[in-house]
Nucleic acid binder design. Structure first.
Lengths: 227, 227
DNA sequence: TCATTTCTGTTGTTTTAACAACATTTTAAA
DNA sequence: TTTAAAATGTTGTTAAAACAACAGAAATGA
């Protein structure tokens, strides 16, 4: 276990917890390691989850199969990242995705119920653990909610303005940098890249926005007849 | 406070907790009530949230203003429902939406930190409280993730098949009922209702699905060239 | 039962997006 | 600095969605 402390220290779950305390917590959480060969299933769709997983070495893929057996990759899980935590919180509902080893990898499983109950003994950092765990889930929630707001718009123009407006408000300025290149932004908003570039150009021609590379400026008067 | 016990008992936060225990918990959580007149702000965008709110009477609206001041309603909050809980978990980030009284209403605020720390004294149900709180957040997470998977598809057809496939898998059968009427389904997937109806008809004509009212059946061989 | 309203499906038109192909700019590398 | 590769913007064509208008079916309730 010792060899993975650097990874654990950087994980969101153990952030702000000292190595010594991590050691004692791992016991308190009945942490156990398991190795998986590439392409092995770590979690199967339909399972009921009672343990939280964390990748400590290698990478895993979260995949989903639809009714017709078509697979799609939901996300990649890197070392230090939790997975299945949502389903661990709602263990009465079977998980609807599978987790597969993308390379040979080592997974740490933590007893979810022990995360929730503050143990009586030494483990004074347990409250911190609960906070971290909650922050991880709430953080994902935030990200999803925000993305949903943009994606629920019908046209590329509206999606873009929704996204840019949110970025502007976040940075508290009408000029701001975005963390995506065009292709990434298109993927994020689920639209075609060239169509997105085209729309950006139109918005600029109409003097609703200005941009140069990844730096954008929103014009105060806003889109025509917008309010 | 006593008068609201029926509402609290049915809320997700206190589900499975007896009235007596709710009473003692409310103390332990420093619950305080506050009344708001219609159109009053309960939470303002930009606030840092340290309390979780619950509507106990009346209704509230969660709204958002973009860069140009355009308001949109994110959701309606009914009695027994928590709000702002995500931001309470991540209190370092200011909330990006406002909560406004939609009618005269009464709000209960709970000290978020006390939800997380198990109090030493009588409150044996505190672990249950943490579980319920976590379930509420994780549950929303689940709903968002699922919706996102459908919405990220580009065509109405793909969105529909993604949604129907998920419903089918959930019910463990190729025949199942959906909880939406056509307009609601269109809103859920952010598409036009008539376009959705049209696509459903095409899918039926192509023998990929069958439907009658809200009962759908997926055909085993699936869409042409799908796999 | 009949009248009214709501819901659903259908069609045609207009708008928008996807897609493909290519030009230009920027970045990285040799 | 030159060359190659990657990223971005531009354009035209095709496919799909939005929108609007309406017809028929189903639900409601008087």
């Amino acid at each position: 276990m010792e060899e993975f402390l650097p990874v654990l220290k950087k994980s969101s779950l153990f952030s702000g917890v000292s190595p010594d305390e991590i050691r004692s917590m791992l016991k308190c959480l009945s942490a156990r390691m398991k190795q998986f060969k590439k392409d092995e299933f770590i979690i199967r769709s339909g399972d009921y989850i009672h343990y939280v997983g964390m990748v400590v070495s290698g990478t895993a893929l979260i995949i989903q199969e639809d009714f017709w057996g078509k697979r799609s990759i939901i996300s990649e899980v890197m070392p230090g990242t939790l997975f299945a935590e949502t389903y661990a919180c709602i263990s009465s509902v079977p998980i609807e995705m599978s987790v597969v080893a993308d390379s040979d990898c080592e997974i740490m499983f933590l007893d979810f119920n022990k995360i929730l109950t503050v143990c009586t003994s030494a483990c004074g950092f347990h409250t911190r653990l609960i906070q971290n765990f909650l922050s991880a889930i709430a953080g994902r929630n935030l990200v999803l909610t925000k993305k949903m707001q943009h994606m629920s718009k019908k046209t590329i123009r509206e999606k873009l303005l929704s996204y840019l407006s949110a970025e502007s408000l976040k940075s508290n300025s009408s000029t701001f940098d975005i963390p995506f290149n065009r292709q990434q932004l298109a993927d994020y908003l689920s639209v075609d890249r060239s169509a997105l570039s085209n729309e950006l150009s139109k918005l600029q021609a109409e003097e609703i926005i200005n941009f140069n590379k990844n730096r954008f400026t929103l014009k105060e008067q806003g889109p025509e007849g917008y309010l």
